[in-house]
């Protein structure tokens, strides 16, 4: 598992990376009521705003942490955005990207470094 400073988590399986937000992020956002996900097939570049999250309080963007192609999105969280508050680092992942260069993940934090960041 790798982590970004924007409180996203990434888990690599072959050349597919699953992306979600951390439990810390969902706690900061509060009750999530609306999520807009990218379309499957979208080519994303690191830094692109790909997801919109609306909580009761405010809207926030999630940026693509990696270059790649979106191959799957989690429709379940669009139907029930509150799932992200329940299980942010489990079933409530956001999208999956297929990447060509897995070394892109190297620059990101491991779990210990991320825990230090939010401590």
């Amino acid at each position: 598992m790798k982590y970004t400073e924007d409180h996203e988590w990434m888990s690599l399986d072959g050349d597919i990376v699953t992306v979600g937000i951390t439990d810390h992020a969902q706690e900061q956002l509060g009750d999530i009521v609306f999520i807009e996900l990218p379309e499957v097939g979208t080519q994303v570049t690191k830094g692109d705003e790909v997801v919109v999250i609306e909580s009761v309080k405010a809207a926030s963007d999630i940026v693509a942490p990696l270059d790649g192609e979106v191959v799957e999105v989690n429709e379940a969280i669009v139907d029930t955005p509150g799932n992200v508050n329940e299980d942010a680092e489990g079933d409530a992942w956001f999208f999956r990207v297929k990447i060509e260069d897995t070394s892109q993940l190297d620059e990101y934090m491991d779990e210990d470094a991320y825990k230090d960041l939010i401590a």
């Binding site: 509060g30 009750d31 009521v33 909580s55 009761v56 309080k57």
Partner: peptide, 12 residues
């Protein structure tokens, strides 16, 4: 206080 541990939705 903007919210308590209950959270905005449940407080509402």
């Amino acid at each position: 206080p903007v919210q308590y541990p209950l959270g905005v939705m449940k407080e509402h």
